[in-house]
Amino acid sequence: MNKTFFIFIASLLFLMALFSGGIELSLQEQLSFSLISVVLLGIPHGAIDNVIFLRQHEVSAKSFYIFYLIAIGLNALLWLYAPMLSIVAFLLISAYHFGQSQFSHYKLLKRTTVVLSFAWGASILSAMLLFNLGELKELTTTVQGFQSFRLSLNSQAFLSMFLLFSLITLICLSINLYKRKFTLEQFLFEILVLALVIFSFYVFPLIIGFTLYFTVLHSLKVLQEEYRFVEKLYDKSLSLMAFGKLLFPYTTISVFGMGIIYLLSELNILPTLSFGYLLLILISSITLPHAFVMDRFYKKKQQPIS
């Protein structure tokens, strides 16, 4: 067990204790919980993409920023004109990105790496959709912008995807165990992680379940890897405070930028969208270049986590 997973377990247990008494959080309270967690951990984990990419590649800072902003802009445009295509692309990219970061500290069998990464991410995302179908249906009827997804909410399709991708994940994990890429303990640990993430999607409301996974299990792990990368750059031990100082300006710029876009939308300068839908577009748009940067990061640098 690594410390990230320990924090995930502890958070899961505290949230379960909170929900075991039948407590019901309003959408506003859930969003507040999510927003605080995402600003504290979610956004910082993608805030130093520039530092990571520019250190690893012979690319000018100007070219990188242009590429990054064009990717964000094109993705946002796609959302306005082809929302269905956009959400499918977002889910596919996210599935691969989540799976890739989950197994980034193993040296997996090359032939299974991409399949396992994608199947793991697709398994948890289809579980999230399957177990929160009621909430999603409500979202598509009450929040402006989500109506176009209503017809695609099919429990049978989500169930089939969930079973298929979970099976592929188990097969890939077993192959890696058989080929001694995992120890038995690591194998059992990965099964436990997958089971608990799926369990959390089943037990908690959509926003809470996803926030728990995204901020603790995903973002915190990526931050840990980024911390080690930056520490190596400095060639000396890096204090958490110093790492925080590095993250802070980029995180602030990201939050500020997202705030500006929201404001421009509210002032009708940009197309007027509901807060929830705009948030989805923004998250999707920053995920696209971030997933690309992290893909290159993992391919260039595979470092173990104790």
């Binding site: 320990f6 377990i9 204790a17 909170l18 075991s20 008494g21 407590i23």
Partner: peptide, 24 residues
Amino acid sequence: TSHSVTYGILSTLGYIYILYAAWF
């Protein structure tokens, strides 16, 4: 709800401590 939540969280604290001691 308040009874379950309060004692649930308090009890969990004890478990988390033992879990932390055993693993880290």
